[in-house]
Amino acid sequence: MEVISGLKTEKKKFSYFGKGSEFAVIYLKNIVLTVLTIGLYYPWAKVELLKYHYQSTALDQNRFTFHGTGKEVFRGFIKLYAVIVVLYALVLYALQTQNTVVLGFAMATFYLFFILLIPFAIHGAARYRASRSSWKGIYFKYLGDRMELFWKCVTGALLTIVTLGLYGSWFSVDIRKYVISHLRFGNLSFDFKGKGETLFWINLKFVFLFYLTLGIYSFWYFKELWSFYADNTEITQDGKKVNFRFTMQPGDIFELMIVNFFLIAFTFGLATPWVAVRTFKFIFRFLEIEEGLDTDSIQQVKYDNYDDAAGDDFLDILDIDLV
């Protein structure tokens, strides 16, 4: 490391300052509002929870901020439901004709459309989340191309089917690399250097050892997997590269998961907010950025004011979360 005085280039640690009871108030308040409005409040609830986690997360003593609004997320849901209603109407119409060919065609369209929406949703979600996230006043930005990602997904999915799932690891790495390498933070860029074969071996080992060890291997698996994701993520600042590091050990993962499990099981789910906070605290405690990144000289670049949350909402419905 080059030592230049005045540069903030030491190792950067993440920390999460959320508190279980504080988050519980926000979490429960949003449940009350969501049920009272028969679900209509959900977009605002989702945004407030996100804002809480962002504002509770610090890197280098500064907090992250999520700038999305309930209105944007709500508009996204409206768009999405319009599409879903049309698809359902198609299937209902086909059911009425009682013609198996028409019904088969409608069902195929329904599922195909749903699956083909996923790459667009990933694109939309990445772009929305990025454009609405900031730290130290600098905004993220996603520069990926919608159609490029779409064709990547189509070929990747087809190859995965043809190889009976074997290609899955390469597919997943490919998509991750595409999304991360098109992410910007001010004048910083990112890249994912992980290889499909590495993930493939991690997964293969898991398949074999999971049964041999009666599931105990899972903790080592998660350690390997998360380290694979973090350690291969690279930040470039003015031509200089630094890596993320994930230092959690299998024992930590064991502690995290077992305690979470008992917390949920013995409180009939009432401990959910405490579990969420505990999980974030754990994960961020072990996540760091290698020394070399100067967090005081990141320059803002053009702002991507992308307010379409439909993609993010679609992933929400499918229960997929980016990152």
Partner: peptide
């Protein structure tokens, strides 16, 4: 304002046009 309550910190952004200023 940041539209969320965290006990130990307040965050504000400012400005009609990008880039937005920020206070923590």
């Amino acid at each position: 304002k940041s539209e969320v309550y965290t006990k130990d910190i307040v965050v504000f952004t400012y400005g009609k046009d990008f880039p937005f200023q920020r206070i923590e």
